[in-house]
């Protein structure tokens, strides 16, 4: 019995060393040599401080910034670690709402979001319906992108808050819109953090 188990034990140890240490370390070494920026999380620094990752959504609530999609991430409740509390854009605990399509509470929450978005963007709301991605939580809660339509919906508000013309802003959004990869894969996107950084650079807010 022991003799028959021996290969299993030995193989587990050898494979653990090979696949659990050697393989990830080798990939880490190669990755950091070849693609150091990506390997460390595509971090963006500003004035020597990390302000986030290009790939990770962060919260924007001010009217002068483009807003990302809703986030349903949570964090442990400081009062009771067994429970969680909503903590949007928590990049240490990703996740979606997992709301059921037939949930009354969910549909109500979307209604609230729609009303909120419409209140924030009264001008656009008058012109057409709210794009669906603006009021639905992303799968990861960290979706860094919005659709070009969602960006367009926010243009009047941001333009107003920054005191720039909608046309100028629109040009920037268009410039920052990433089309489908190779013209076919995925969807056209606008990276919110990158757009807002460009916004701050081109049209700084006058205080």
């Amino acid at each position: 019995m022991i003799k028959q188990l021996l290969p299993s034990l030995a193989l587990t140890i050898v494979l653990t060393l090979l696949l659990g240490l050697a393989y990830p370390f080798a990939v880490t070494g190669a990755a950091q040599a070849l693609f150091p920026r990506q390997a460390h999380g595509s971090l963006i620094e500003k004035d020597g401080r990390v302000i986030g990752s290009e790939l990770i959504a962060q919260g924007f609530a001010k009217p002068e910034y483009f807003h990302p999609r809703p986030s349903a991430t949570t964090a442990p409740d400081p009062a009771d670690p067994a429970k969680t509390i909503p903590t949007p854009y928590n990049a240490a605990n990703s996740g979606g709402s997992n709301a059921a399509p037939t949930s009354k509470a969910y549909v109500e929450s979307v209604r609230t979001l729609v009303e909120q978005v419409e209140a924030e963007n009264p001008e656009s709301a008058r012109n057409g319906p709210v794009p669906v991605d603006m009021v639905t939580a992303s799968g990861s809660g960290l979706d860094p992108d919005i659709s070009p339509e969602a960006a367009e919906f926010q243009v009047p508000r941001v333009a107003k808050a920054r005191g720039v013309s909608e046309e100028a802003l629109r040009a920037l959004v268009t410039d920052r819109t990433r089309p489908r990869t190779f013209g076919i894969l995925g969807e056209a996107t606008v990276n919110v953090l990158a757009l807002n950084l460009a916004l701050d650079a081109r049209f700084p807010v006058r205080r």
């Binding site: 880490t28 999380g41 971090l43 302000i51 001010k62 950084l197």
Partner: peptide
């Protein structure tokens, strides 16, 4: 990403702290 770094603490544009795993 492919690193063994600690989780990154970032200060967002709006001034909040975001811990990035």
């Amino acid at each position: 990403p492919q690193n063994l770094d600690a989780y990154t603490a970032a200060t967002t544009l709006e001034g909040a702290t975001q811990v990035i795993a």
